[in-house]
Design a protein around this nucleic acid. Structure first.
Lengths: 205, 205
DNA sequence: CAATCGGTACCGACTAGTCGGTTTGTACAT
DNA sequence: ATGTACAAACCGACTAGTCGGTACCGATTG
């Protein structure tokens, strides 16, 4: 185990507590007691309880964005890009599952100045997926008659919802889940031409 | 507009407030003031603030369950059942959108005795979808190699996530969205035999 | 080496304010 | 008179955040 700074210890503790009781179900007193520190220590590291919530949000969304960009840039065809982006996201999942729960369930409680920063990153993420769908339509891999918006939100929903049911010690691995998601989405949006490529690259089950 | 009882007025008010500020972002004082009543009136109608939260949860999930059961019972083939169930759900959406937001974002704050009731109904809902997938595999409409669990969660995720982005006054109607969802999911899980039937019944775009 | 100094990290008692819930009061119907 | 349906004032518990203080650590000086 790496040496843990006080800040890291507070975040780790808070994540566990928030996930089970929700942001408002946990007081700063409880966080500092569980983390084995003090009120002073907490406010030395964080401007406010809200700032801690923001940090948890930002760490997660920034990582997702970074990985997604990489997946987009490092792949050639839209099919490769889609699969790689899905794979990236679900990979982040395994590491940041606690962040995600807080991210999606408690974001309403972020003060506006924090919320805007997060919102921009979320938008950027959505636009990258929309871009891939558009690319695929133009290149003939994806059917032109599907709606980019709806398809994008379908993909995001499908993937994001995983945080509600996926358990790291459960019987399903992220690998299996991603494989199924790829199969479901690709079959749903590809043209016959696209299907040839996907089959050849073994993206389908 | 129908005559509104005090109880209905409180629920309507609370829904609007909760949706924008979250459950903990709204005090009972604010609810009663906005609803034009008093603390006494509130606690005359509700045992506690938690009880109000529970009621919002229950109204929504009970309706979803009822509609889904109907969709299952009143259709013959798995393909019809799936489409009808999706259609039911998205229909409930239009009416209960505010409930849904509270339902998914604030359920962590339900006290255990309430939470268990809700959890049972959610499980029942999930099992109905799993049942349809299984039915479809047996009847040859759906591909036997897909995982029932993952596919079920994919469908639920896809559909549920809609509450995060769908807006009643937006440019997309629920009708269009449902059509796309049906297309995406069916193409993703059907066998060639199933595809014939779906095309014939015009379930695909 | 030892004494001193400055700054950072951290502590915990304290406070002002807010919240959910209760108690008491009142108007009205039966 | 008695119960119902609310209103208004009130209360105790709890919370986020503050603030005066201490412990520690590395650099500077004699």
């Amino acid at each position: 185990m790496a040496v843990q700074s006080l800040k890291e210890r507070i975040i780790e503790t808070a994540l566990d507590l928030f996930r089970h009781k929700g942001y408002h179900g946990v007081s700063v007193d409880e966080i500092v007691e569980t983390a084995g520190t003090s009120k002073g220590g907490f406010y030395h590291k964080f401007k406010s309880k809200d700032a801690l919530l923001y940090e948890i949000h930002d760490v997660f969304i920034s990582q997702v964005l970074k990985e997604t960009k990489k997946a987009y840039d490092q792949n050639e065809t839209p099919i490769d890009k889609v699969c790689s982006m899905l794979y990236s996201f679900t990979n982040v999942f395994d590491v940041y599952q606690r962040h995600i729960t807080v991210f999606y369930d408690e974001s309403a409680y972020l003060p506006p100045e924090y919320k805007n920063v997060i919102k921009e990153k979320r938008t950027e993420y959505r636009q990258m997926i929309e871009q891939v769908i558009e690319d695929g339509k133009k290149s003939g891999h994806f059917r032109p008659e599907i709606s980019t918006t709806i398809t994008t939100m379908a993909i995001i929903g499908l993937v994001n919802w995983t945080y509600k049911w996926y358990r790291q010690n459960g019987s399903l691995t992220m690998e299996q889940i991603t494989l199924h998601f790829n199969d479901l989405i690709l079959r749903g949006i590809m043209t016959d031409q696209g299907s040839q490529e996907a089959k050849h690259k073994k993206y389908l089950i």
